[in-house]
Amino acid sequence: MSLRSKLAAAAVAIGVAPLIVVVAPAATASAHGYISSPPSRQANCAQGKVQNCGDIVWEPQSVEGPKGATNCHGNNGRFAQLSDESKGWPATSVGGTVTFNWVLTARHATSTWQYFIGGTRIAEFNDGGRQPGATVSHTVNLGGRSGRQKLLAVWNIADTANAFYSCVDLQVNGFAGGTPNALAAV
C-alpha cells in the first residue's frame, strides 16, 4: 500500500504540503497475511510463545518475499529468525488431514496457495487471479506423513512478483481426520 501517496493526498487536502517532508514514513508499510491456526511461526511469535523474534512480533502478516522462496522467512532478511531452527518452535498435534486458517489484512488478487513439506508440494489451490473472500481456509491431506513436520505455506499474489510465507510446525499423529481424544472416545 502506498502510505506515502495517502500522506501526500492528505497534506494537499488540508493545505500543509510544506510539512510533508517531516511526515514521510521511513519504510513503506507492507502487510498482508499469515496462517493463524494451527499457529504458524509468526503467530507463535506474536503471541509471545516464542521469544526474541524481532520485528515479526508487531507484524506477523508481513513475511513478503519474491515468489519461489523455500524458507520460512521468504528470503526477507528482516524476518530471518523465522528460519532459525534452534528457537524451539512449538508443534501442534494434528491428524493426517489439517485445516489451515489464514488472517488477511489485504485481499490481494491471488494466483495460488501452495503447501510444501520437505521441498515436496503436497497441495495447491488455484484462485485464478480472484480476490480472496472474507476468510480463507484450506484442508490439506498430509499424505500419510507422521511425526514432527515443518510445513511451508505460500500465498502467491497474482499481480505482483511477490508471495507471502508462513511455516507451521506440526506433530502428526499418523491417522487421518481425528484427534487423540476422538480416538479415545471410540
Binding site: V23, A24, P25, A31, N101, V103
Partner: peptide, 24 residues
C-alpha cells in the same frame, strides 16, 4: 473462527496505521 481471523486482521491494520503517526 471467522470473527477471530477477521478481527485479528482488522487489528493488524490498526497497528500498522499507528506507525506513521508515531514517526511523523
Amino acid at each position: 473462527t471467522t470473527f477471530l481471523n477477521l478481527m485479528t486482521g482488522h487489528l493488524h491494520n490498526s497497528v500498522e496505521l499507528t506507525r506513521s503517526e508515531i514517526e511523523g
